[in-house]
């Protein structure tokens, strides 16, 4: 009977080990994940767009370590210079519900890696694949799309808005609006 608490504790700690898995040797810059995603919900015929994802997203979503790394990288790569702390600047806001180029983790990874025509630079080859995924999952947390338990809870600097784990989740609106300049007469 004396062993029971010990076994319970051991069980808990082993379960805790299972909570978050982390790769300590991540892929080098030259490798990139391949995801077959669509940017829109429309596809000819009766079926929705064909998509085939690798499942890599599962190891990033809801992962506190990756989320906090993403928050750090967000400032290191000057993402905040264009998107501020989520409210936007020259780039669109990231804390609102409008997703011009898709809200799935795979979509966001593509956006960061490929760039987008109205000013988003392409980061392909400029940072390792896993760091792009970390940035992308942090971007999702800015509008409350990541679990509260895992999302960052504080800023190192001026606190201009509720922290990511206190953001009310806003269900993504696909499409949003492209920059009006993009629709100007050409």
């Amino acid at each position: 009977m004396k062993l029971l608490p010990f076994i319970i504790c051991l069980g808990f700690s082993l379960a805790a080990c299972e909570r978050e898995k982390r790769d300590f040797r991540t892929a080098p810059v030259s490798e990139e994940s391949q995801e077959k995603t669509a940017l829109v919900s429309l596809s000819p015929g009766s079926s929705p767009p064909e998509q085939e994802v690798s499942g890599k997203a599962r190891s990033f979503e809801g992962n506190a370590y990756h989320l906090s790394q993403g928050k750090r990288l967000y400032a290191w790569f000057n993402c905040n210079g264009c998107h501020a702390n989520g409210g936007g600047d020259s780039g669109p806001p990231l804390m609102d519900d409008r997703w011009i180029y898709g809200s799935s983790l795979e979509n966001i990874v593509q956006t960061i890696r490929e760039g987008r025509p109205n000013g988003m630079p392409s980061f392909r080859g400029k940072l390792p694949d896993d760091q792009i995924w970390e940035l992308a999952v942090y971007v999702r947390s800015m509008s409350g799309l990541e679990p509260k338990a895992a999302a960052p809870s504080r800023n190192d600097d001026m606190h201009p808005l509720p922290s990511e784990n206190r953001m009310p989740p806003s269900s993504p609106v696909p499409g949003g609006s492209a920059s009006p300049s993009a629709t100007a007469p050409q």
Partner: peptide, 21 residues
């Protein structure tokens, strides 16, 4: 006026380099 022309989110005071506040 970037808060209007760029559709910025008014909840973030640091948006548009702090002008949105």
């Amino acid at each position: 006026g970037a808060i209007v022309s760029n559709d910025l989110d008014p909840r973030d005071g640091t948006a548009a380099k702090g002008f949105v506040n």
